[in-house]
């Protein structure tokens, strides 16, 4: 088998979420002395395919979740083997959390995995996050993007309050705010005072990348 064929097989196995095969091949690659960074690049390509399949309506949330599981396991396995200088360039920083009054985290966690797979550094504030916590994190980490998640309509008020608190702290102009989750729509975005709302994780990644390119 040619090298490029092996590479294709690897990317396809991951895009098809064939966990067993992915780990067998990863072992093989490492044993053959392949650079972990190269492997991670293939992983990224596979994740792009996963995202594309989601956009096309073929893959669903369970697929993204499974892809995330495999990805996290792979990253844990490969990261320690990377040389310090040999890590890929970060596109930007994102602070993200489920707002106060809500603890739903399925969507948020998938978005985080997707951001990380796309070279963003993510600071996860967890769930039920107080507005002040968002402010502190923005001051400390200086992100370009802040993501807020909520499934409950009762948390819309909490999102709005979070945006207001960020404004009052004088930080609103240095960040873009994306909201997402459940029944959130254009009206919610207006009400909350966010810059955008996204219906799914892939849309959020695409938008964030666009923002970063616009820098």
């Amino acid at each position: 088998m040619k090298l490029s064929e092996i590479q294709d097989e690897y990317i396809n196995a991951l895009a098809d979420l064939d966990e067993t095969k992915v780990f067998e091949l990863t072992e093989k690659k490492l044993n053959a002395g392949e650079d972990p960074l190269e492997i991670l690049n293939d992983v990224k390509k596979a994740m792009d395919i996963v995202g594309k399949r989601f956009e096309d309506g073929w893959y669903f949330v369970a697929d993204l979740m499974m892809a995330g599981e495999i990805l996290n396991k792979l990253t844990d396995m490969l990261k320690p083997k990377l040389k310090k200088s040999n890590t890929s360039k970060l596109l930007g920083k994102v602070v993200i959390g489920t707002v106060k009054g809500d603890i739903h985290d399925i969507g948020k966690d998938i978005v985080i995995t997707m951001f990380e797979a796309n070279d963003f550094e993510v600071i996860d504030l967890g769930v039920d996050v107080h507005p002040d916590k968002f402010v502190e994190a923005i001051q400390k980490h200086q992100p370009k993007i802040v993501g807020m998640s909520a499934l409950l309509t009762s948390a819309f008020g909490s999102m709005r309050e979070t945006v207001k608190t960020i404004e009052e702290a004088g930080l609103r102009n240095q960040i873009k705010i994306i909201i997402g989750g459940g029944t959130i729509d254009e009206d919610t975005k207006e009400y909350v005072g966010a810059d955008a709302y996204c219906r799914d994780p892939v849309a959020a990644i695409n938008l964030a990348k666009k923002w970063m390119e616009g820098e």
Binding site: G101, I103, D105, G126, V127, L152, S154
Partner: peptide
Amino acid sequence: DAPTYQFVEPGQKIEG
């Protein structure tokens, strides 16, 4: 004064 209750799923993390 929380306006709603919350259901925490098996294995879900609250404050880590």
